[in-house]
C-alpha cells in the first residue's frame, strides 16, 4: 500500500547503493587536491596483477592490492611545473599508463612506466601543445586532437611494449574542434568522435580515413561521446551533455542513447537516461563500460544506469567526507571507483 501511494519514494530508497557494495577505501594522505583514479595491469615480481592508480595535482600514485581488499601505495611519480588533469589508461597494456597535464586545457601528455633494468620510475613526453581531446585505445594506442582550426591535427600513436618508443600517424582532420573520442565495440578499426559543431565523425584507424561526418542536431550541442556499439548495420552511441538544457518532457537526461545509420547519416533517439524523481544535477564526470554508465553530478551524487534495462540502478549520495568529484569503472573487474577531492577513493563492487 505504501509503495502504491509513494512509488517514487520507495524506488529512491531501494536505489541508494542499489547494486553497489563498499569493499575498500584508499586514503591518500597528500594535502593536494585529488583529480582522478583508474586501474592498470602491472607486472612486478613475475606475476601480473590489477593495481589502482590515483592522481593528485602534482603526483600520480600506484597502489598494490594486499589481502582483504587493502591497498598499499608502492610508486609515486612527481610533477613539478604543470598540474595533472586526468589519467589516460591504455587498457590492454601492462606497466604503462598515460597522464594529461595542464591547467584548464591539456598542455602535455606523458607516458608513465617503470624501467625494466633498475625498476626506476620513468616518464616521457608523448605530446605537447593545445590538446583538445585524448583517449587511450586497445593495442597500446593513444589518439589525440590538437591545434586550432587552421592547424588542427588528429594523431594516432602506438607504443612499444616498454613504452620507450612510439610510432605516429595522422588521421584525417574533420577541420573542427573535437570534444571527445570513443571506441566502437564490435568494430576494432573504427573510431568515433563528437565535435563542437554537433557532428559525429567516424575514422578508419587502419587507413586514417575520415569516413563520415554526421550532423546530430542542435539539442545535442557540445555532446561528449562515451561509447559506441556497432550492431545490425547501425551505430548506437552513448552521449552526455555537460552544457545541455533540461528538456521538461524528459526530465533531466544525463546520458542519451542514439542510433545512427552511418550510410545515410540519419539518426534517431533511442533512450534518455534520466535521474529518478527527486534528484537533480547535471553531468560533471562519467564513464561507460560495457552496459553500465556512471556519472558524477553537480549535486555531488554518483548515479549508475544499466543501459539495457534503461533506468538508474544505484545512487551514491555524498557521504560524511563530502561530495563525489570523479568516478571510473575498473578496467579489470566490475568495480566502481568513486573519488573525492580530499584524496579518498572508495571501491564498490557492482
Amino acid at each position: 500500500k505504501v509503495a502504491e501511494e509513494h512509488p517514487d519514494e520507495i524506488w529512491c530508497d531501494s536505489l541508494k547503493l542499489g547494486n553497489l557494495q563498499l569493499v575498500s577505501k584508499l586514503k591518500n594522505p597528500s594535502d593536494s587536491c585529488s583529480v582522478d583514479v583508474s586501474t592498470v595491469w602491472w607486472e612486478g615480481t613475475g606475476s601480473k596483477e590489477s593495481r589502482i592508480i590515483t592522481a593528485c595535482e602534482f603526483t600520480v600514485s600506484l597502489w598494490k592490492s594486499l589481502d582483504n581488499w587493502q591497498w598499499r601505495k608502492v610508486y609515486t611519480w612527481h610533477f613539478t611545473e604543470i598540474p595533472v588533469l586526468q589519467i589516460i589508461p591504455l587498457w590492454d597494456t601492462c606497466n604503462l599508463v598515460c597522464v594529461a597535464l595542464g591547467h584548464l586545457e591539456i598542455r602535455e601528455i606523458r607516458l608513465l612506466f617503470c624501467s625494466d633494468d633498475d625498476e626506476c620510475l620513468k616518464q616521457s613526453l608523448v605530446k605537447s601543445g593545445n590538446i583538445k581531446a585524448v583517449l587511450g585505445l586497445r593495442h597500446k594506442r593513444l589518439v589525440c586532437s590538437n591545434g586550432t582550426l587552421h592547424d588542427h591535427q588528429v594523431d594516432l600513436m602506438t607504443f612499444s611494449g616498454s613504452g620507450r618508443s612510439k610510432e605516429k600517424r595522422t588521421l584525417m582532420s574533420p577541420e573542427e574542434t573535437i570534444l571527445a573520442f570513443a571506441e566502437v565495440q564490435g568494430m576494432q578499426d573504427a573510431l568515433l568522435g563528437t565535435t563542437l559543431m554537433s557532428n559525429i565523425v567516424i575514422w578508419n584507424l587502419k587507413t586514417g580515413q575520415l569516413l563520415k561526418k554526421m550532423q546530430i542536431g542542435n539539442s545535442y550541442q557540445a555532446s561528449i561521446c562515451h561509447k559506441a556499439y556497432s550492431d545490425m548495420g547501425l551505430l548506437f552511441v552513448v552521449l552526455s551533455h555537460p552544457h545541455g538544457k533540461e528538456i521538461e518532457s524528459m526530465g533531466s537526461p544525463i546520458f542519451r542513447l542514439i542510433a545512427i545509420n552511418p550510410k545515410t547519416a540519419l539518426s534517431v533517439d533511442v533512450r534518455p537516461y534520466s535521474l529518478p524523481q527527486g534528484h537533480t544535477g547535471r553531468f560533471l564526470d562519467g564513464e561507460v563500460k560495457d552496459n553500465l554508465a556512471a556519472a558524477v553530478l553537480t549535486s555531488g551524487t554518483i548515479a549508475v544506469w544499466d543501459l539495457f534495462l534503461g533506468h538508474c540502478t544505484a545512487l551514491l549520495l555524498p557521504n560524511s567526507d563530502g561530495n563525489w568529484s570523479f568516478v571510473k569503472w575498473s578496467g579489470t573487474d566490475s568495480c566502481l571507483l568513486a573519488g573525492q577531492k580530499n584524496g579518498s577513493v572508495f571501491v564498490y563492487s557492482y
Partner: peptide
C-alpha cells in the same frame, strides 16, 4: 529503429564507407 527513420541499412557500412572516402 526502422528503415523509414534511418534509411537503407547496410551490414557492411564500414567497408563501403572506407571504399567511398578520400584516401
Amino acid at each position: 529503429c526502422s528503415e523509414s527513420d534511418l534509411g537503407p541499412i547496410s551490414l557492411n557500412w564500414f567497408e563501403e564507407l572506407t571504399s567511398e572516402a578520400p584516401p
